[in-house]
């Protein structure tokens, strides 16, 4: 028997049991437990307003930076500055454009340069220049294309880039920038000034990788509706799983058909995305449609009166969105699929 267990100074590794020591130890542990419980209860009440800190309601938004001279916006002849150049970041963009801010911040927005310019001769003629630094040309094209106006006019100044004009504004991509020049009135004088301002913006250098959006070349040019190409970086067609979706419209007979594709890393990723979208459609009321095409079987759907198609070819997700005519939809989808497949083969 090991006597060390019963003696204090026996040289044993284990300590003997002793009533006073046990009681004191338990008492200390009990006190610590009570403190822990009190802390837990108090910390659980996280209403920091009790202390006058009503974040974010009382937090101050960073003010825009104001510059005397803009690094990217030059005023045109006959116009003065109506405001300093203001620079907004993702943190305070909403101050300037309120509910439209998420459209930009969710597409890689970095900075907004903003300035108002006014005619020296007519105070009713002024314009506001919005120059969004979107980080790269794809992001810039995305916000440009998804806001494209119906009555857009292609102007000579934009033949080498993506851009158009309306009766009171110019909208274009310049490398990583998306620019909006918005006039206070429909006026030839304003349009001339806006064109000059746009030309000045276009003098800013563009890096080689931001010259164009390469994927747009994958759309066949025949029957393509001019200026109809768009890029949805996220949540295309209301489905979170569809990202980097390029769309374009084609004139097929008397039908306008919207086709789309997304280039994925590999065929497996493409199939996963396509399957996800098919599942989304089915869960939201779509039903499989009959087709004479074996290839499109189980890939074509009736969705509240319109036709949806989604399939893959190689690493591309391909499809048709909201087509009113099934035959035209199938035709457009297959034309795009062949073009994408050929481009993939050419690269291999």
């Amino acid at each position: 028997m090991n006597q060390n267990h019963t003696q204090f100074s026996s040289g044993s590794d284990r300590r003997p049991q002793n009533r006073p020591e046990t009681i004191v130890s338990i008492s200390i542990i009990a006190v610590l437990l009570v403190i822990a419980v009190i802390l837990f209860v108090r910390q659980k009440d996280t209403d920091i307003r009790r202390f006058g800190i009503t974040a974010p309601s009382l937090q101050l938004t960073p003010k825009p930076i104001e510059l005397e001279n803009s690094p990217v916006i030059q005023q045109p002849a006959g116009f003065d500055k109506l405001s300093q150049t203001e620079i907004y970041t993702a943190e305070n963009l909403y101050e300037k454009i309120d509910g439209k801010a998420p459209l930009y911040t969710e597409a890689g927005f970095l900075k907004l340069y903003c300035q108002r310019l006014i005619s020296k001769t007519d105070p009713n003629l002024w314009m506001e220049v919005f120059l969004y630094d979107m980080g790269n040309v794809r992001n810039a094209f995305s916000v440009y294309s998804t806001q494209h106006r119906a009555d857009a006019k292609i102007l000579p100044i934009f033949t080498q880039t993506y851009g158009y004009g309306t009766s009171n504004g110019l909208y274009f991509v310049h490398g990583r920038y998306y620019a909006e020049l918005i006039g206070s009135a429909e006026s030839d004088q304003l349009v001339m000034a806006m064109l000059e301002t746009a030309a000045n913006i276009q003098k800013n250098p563009v890096s080689a990788e931001d010259l164009k959006v390469n994927e747009l070349d994958l759309f066949q040019s025949e029957n393509l509706v001019p200026d109809s190409m768009k890029l949805y970086l996220k949540n295309a067609f209301g489905f979170e799983g569809l990202s980097d979706i390029f769309t374009a419209q084609y004139q097929i007979g008397d039908q306008i058909i919207t086709v789309f594709f997304s280039k994925r890393l590999d065929a497996a990723e493409a199939e996963a995305m396509a399957a996800g979208y098919r599942k989304f459609l089915m869960e939201n009321g779509a039903t499989a449609k009959q087709t004479t095409s074996d290839f499109l079987k189980d890939k074509i759907f009736e969705f509240y009166g319109v036709t949806e198609i989604v399939f893959t070819t190689g690493r591309f997700v391909v499809g048709v969105h909201e087509a009113e005519n099934q035959d035209s939809a199938e035709k457009a989808a297959m034309i795009l699929a062949v073009k994408l497949s050929d481009s993939d083969k050419a690269k291999q």
Binding site: I97, D98, G99, K100, Q147, R149, A150, D151, A152, T166, S167, N168, G169, Y171, E180, I182, E186
Partner: peptide, 10 residues
């Protein structure tokens, strides 16, 4: 379209 800021008469 393009609300709430708009920007074009179109």
């Amino acid at each position: 379209t393009n609300g709430p800021t708009g920007g074009s008469l179109s």
